[in-house]
C-alpha cells in the first residue's frame, strides 16, 4: 500500500520534470507543464492499471502544499502593488464585465447546445477556483462533481491556450493579460501566468481571488435573470 503511494508520488514528480524542461526549450500550448504532465500521468496510470482511488493517497501528499502556495501569491501581489493600484479602476471594470461575460456566455452556449438545465447551471461556475465553485453551485441548482470537472478543464485550457489567444487578439499589456487569465482560469491559469512574467502572475492572483468573491456574490442573483 505504502509502496504504491510512493510509486505514484515518484511517478508524478518524475513526469513533471520532463514537461518543465521541455517547456523551457519549446514553449507552445501543448507543452504547457500542467497539461502535458496531467496527460502523461493519466496514460502511465492506465498502462500500469492503477485507478484514481489507488492514486488518491499520493494526491493528498502532493497537494499538501497547494494551500500555502496559494497564500504565497500575496508576495508577487505585494511587490507589484503600486503598479496595480495605479490601474485599479481599469482592472475593476475589466474584471467585473469580464466575469459577467464569462458567466453569460457559458450559460448561453450551454443553452444553444441543448445541454440539460443542471449542466447549464453548473457551467456558470466553471471560471472560479474549485472550492468556491463547489460551494456556490448547489445554490443555483448545479452539480458539484461536474463543477470540479468543468473548473479544472477551463483552468487547463486557459493555462495552455490563454496566452496564445491574447496574443492573437493583440492584447500585449501585461496587467491586462494577467487579469484575463486569472479571471477565466483561476489558480491553474495563474500557475502559468507566473511563468510569463512577475506582473502577469501578480495580477492573475488578484483576479483569481476577486473573481471568486465577485462570482459567489452575484451569481445567485443573476442566475434568476436567465430563468
Amino acid at each position: 500500500m505504502y509502496g504504491l503511494t510512493l510509486f505514484n508520488i515518484s511517478l508524478t514528480l518524475l513526469i513533471y520534470i520532463g514537461p518543465r524542461v521541455l517547456y523551457r526549450h519549446i514553449s507552445n500550448p501543448f507543452t504547457t507543464p500542467v497539461l502535458l504532465t496531467t496527460i502523461l500521468v493519466i496514460i502511465v496510470l492506465r498502462i500500469v492499471d492503477i485507478n484514481y482511488e489507488q492514486y488518491t493517497p499520493a494526491k493528498e501528499w502532493l497537494t499538501y502544499l497547494l494551500g500555502p502556495a496559494t497564500v504565497a501569491l500575496a508576495v508577487p501581489m505585494y511587490k507589484n502593488r503600486l503598479v496595480i493600484r495605479e490601474k485599479a479602476i481599469q482592472v475593476s471594470v475589466g474584471l467585473t464585465v469580464g466575469s459577467l461575460a464569462t458567466i453569460a456566455s457559458a450559460i448561453g452556449i450551454s443553452k444553444m447546445l441543448n445541454l440539460s438545465e443542471r449542466i447549464q447551471a453548473t457551467s456558470a461556475v466553471k471560471a472560479v477556483t474549485t472550492p468556491v465553485a463547489i460551494e456556490i453551485v448547489p445554490i443555483i441548482g448545479g452539480d458539484p462533481t461536474l463543477a470540479a470537472v468543468l473548473v479544472i478543464t477551463a483552468g487547463i485550457f486557459g493555462a495552455a491556450f490563454g496566452s496564445l489567444c491574447l496574443t492573437l487578439f493583440k492584447i500585449h499589456d501585461p496587467i491586462s493579460r494577467g487579469l484575463g487569465i486569472g479571471t477565466v482560469s483561476h489558480g491553474i491559469g495563474t500557475s502559468q501566468a507566473v511563468t510569463e512574467g512577475r506582473l502577469q502572475g501578480a495580477v492573475s492572483s488578484v483576479a483569481m481571488g476577486a473573481a471568486a468573491i465577485l462570482t459567489s456574490i452575484i451569481l445567485p442573483l443573476i442566475y434568476k435573470l436567465f430563468n
Partner: peptide, 18 residues
C-alpha cells in the same frame, strides 16, 4: 512554491480520468 504551483494542480487534474 509559486515556481512549482502547476505541480500541485496535477493530481486534481488527473482526477479527470474517472
Amino acid at each position: 512554491l509559486i515556481k512549482h504551483l502547476a505541480l500541485f494542480f496535477v493530481p486534481y487534474a488527473v482526477g479527470l480520468m474517472t
